[in-house]
Write a protein that binds this DNA or RNA. Structure first.
Length: 543
RNA sequence: GCGCCCGUAGCUCAGGGGACAGAGCAGCGGACUUCUAAUCCGCCGGUCGCAGGUUCGAAUCCUGCCGGGCGCGCCA
């Protein structure tokens, strides 16, 4: 149990003892100013009104009634805060616990209903973009954080390889392919074709494998072959990029399998039976407005093909059938209108309203020399994630992406990421880790037993308090589905370590002191490595 | 027009009822014979978009404006 929780309990009992009432939601926090104690609570201020006493008086009574052996001192301060200082013994007790858990400190055993986290799910119609990169970095880190926090989470990538975009993409490659043999491939809308140079690459690979055979086939069949080849090519390309960025998925799901299974027809039949669909203007509509959507949505277009609602309903019901009780979808903010529709459709199918949960990721803009970078030659009207990785490296890319909240629009300043890499926050954190490694290398040992607890110097105390905050940071990030608290935390922790390092020499002659400081280093190293790992960033031994 | 999100230091962003609003970068000035100076310390820099309201207390909650983004397709 954390000190916050232990303090909250102790305060709750003190309130009970002094006033005979049970309070919950007792707020204990780390004050900004160290002179306000290791921890502080505002209960006296928050409850002065109900108790009909002035806050300072309440605070005094609390301090008087407080029984907490791990508290060295409790003092009333300001308008009625109670500030707590913990005993060094108690802090050392937690450091020992931290060292026992190592880089699993703060982790919880998995429990609860299965959650499926779906992210990226970029269409296999081209390379991953820098926007997908943000989704990948966010989603993968979130999965790691939720896992650490004890959520029963799995990750999945949905390959949209069955829809309209894919047909267009197939045509784009077919045009290039035919051109290689001096032939023309007729298309309905040349402007809608994919323009990036990679379509040329795919066409060449296709030609290398099949020569001009596919041009001999009947056109529909040839297009099917070409499209299948092209989407497979993109999936491989995307998976390679993901692997490079250290993003992993537990499973991949193909939209095509939905079309081929006949499940859509089945769903439509089900909806017909429940009377939630109707025909109008030659299309089949789903009455999503009965389930919380603004208006009804087309399910089967007048040309007989399905809108995305069809396969998506099947896919999400499949998630439910596989046992997941929460489906978290990470989507681009430009898809904001989509969740209410899908949710309404799922409710129409009898799934609970809270099954689908959506996190919207805002746009990322690449900025170079103050100008927005909008496209690249290879990728067409986008910038490929690979190109960003080439420029700034995997660690910087992943760290920068998640440093700010996924909910805010982000400017990724390339000049800063590259040119000033020395002053980069990711290096700042990594450097703390490397410094510690260097100490252990010099020391030739890792601490096997701990020296008896001793008084903590101010810099040591701040470092320790920061270390012990890690479990709460993980829980909080998981609960809010936010990743950026981790970098924020790591930077503070690195600062606390660098400050400690500047003031105190670790490898001193006094064996007890040396042992204690090595223990702090080991603890810091474990938490830094653990935190960086949550972000998919390396923790180097040397820099 | 309706709905959702966002306005915090020159820049990129934390903080989302508490004690003087924080960090990094940029700028200025200090600190390496001692475990890595990719570090540390100090200075400069903010009417937390504006105006009301709730509260003992508001950057934080509520309302209204202003500014920006996104959505409101038989596209995904």
């Amino acid at each position: 149990m954390s000190f916050e929780e232990r303090l909250a309990d102790a305060v709750r009992e003190a309130v009970h003892k002094a006033y005979g009432i049970e309070l919950d939601g007792i707020h204990v926090e780390r004050p900004n100013d160290p002179s306000h104690g290791d921890f502080a609570t505002n209960v006296a201020l928050a409850n002065a009104r109900v108790l009909r006493r002035n806050p300072r008086e309440v605070a005094e009574n609390l301090v008087g009634a407080l029984e907490a052996p791990f508290v060295r001192e409790a003092k009333v301060a300001g308008p009625g805060f109670v500030n707590f200082w913990l005993s060094s013994e108690a802090l050392w007790g937690e450091i020992r616990a931290l060292l026992r858990h190592g880089d699993r400190y703060g982790w919880n055993e998995p429990s609860g209903e299965p959650v499926l986290l779906e992210f990226v799910s970029a269409n296999p119609t081209g390379p991953m973009t820098v926007a997908h990169g943000r989704h990948a970095a966010y989603g993968d880190s979130l999965a790691r954080i939720m896992d650490a926090a004890g959520r029963n989470v799995s990750t999945e990538y949905y390959f949209n390889d069955g829809g309209n975009q894919v047909r267009l993409f197939g045509e784009s490659v077919a045009v290039r392919y035919a051109a290689l043999f001096g032939e023309e491939w007729p298309v309905s809308d040349p402007d809608a074709l994919y323009k990036g140079d990679y379509t040329e690459e795919i066409a060449r690979d296709l030609a290398a494998e099949h020569d001009r055979q596919l041009l001999e086939l009947e056109r529909d069949e040839a297009l099917r072959e070409i499209t299948a080849f092209a989407t497979r090519w993109c999936m491989d390309d995307i998976k390679r990029t993901l692997g490079r960025a250290r993003v992993s998925f537990d499973s991949f799901f193909n939209e095509k399998s939905v079309y081929e299974s006949g499940a859509i027809e089945e769903i439509v039949r089900e909806l017909e039976e429940s009377g939630t669909v109707y025909e109008s203007e030659g299309a089949l509509w789903l009455a999503t407005s009965k389930f919380g959507d603004d208006k009804d949505r087309v399910l089967v277009k007048s040309d007989g093909t399905y809108t995305y609602m069809g396969p998506d309903l099947v896919y999400h019901r499949d998630k439910w059938d596989r046992g997941f009780r929460t489906a978290v979808n990470v989507l681009g903010a430009d898809h904001a209108g989509y969740p209410p529709r899908l949710r309404a459709g799922l409710v129409a199918l009898g799934l609970p309203r809270d099954f689908l949960d959506v996190e919207l990721v805002r746009l990322v803009k690449l900025v170079r020399e103050g100008e927005q970078v909008k496209f690249s030659k290879r990728a067409g009207n986008i910038v490929a994630f690979d190109e960003l990785l080439d420029e700034v490296g995997e660690d910087v890319a992943r760290y920068f992406y998640v440093r700010s909240s996924h909910k805010t629009e982000m400017n990724f300043d390339l000049d800063l990421a590259i040119r000033q890499s020395d002053e980069n926050p990711v290096f700042y954190v990594q450097y703390a880790h490397a410094r510690i490694s260097s100490i252990f290398e010099r020391a030739g040992t890792t601490p096997e037993h701990l020296a008896p607890p001793g008084e903590l110097a101010p810099e040591e105390r701040l470092l320790v308090l920061e270390l012990l905050d890690f479990p709460r940071v993980i829980d909080n990030a998981a609960a809010r589905r936010e990743v950026h608290p981790i970098p924020t935390y790591l930077e503070t922790l690195a600062t606390r370590f660098h400050q400690f390092y500047t003031v105190h020499r670790v490898l001193v002659d006094d064996a007890d002191v040396r042992e204690r400081r090595l223990a702090l280093c080991a603890a810091t190293k474990a938490v830094l490595r653990s935190g960086l790992d949550l972000l998919g960033v390396n923790a180097p031994e040397k820099m």
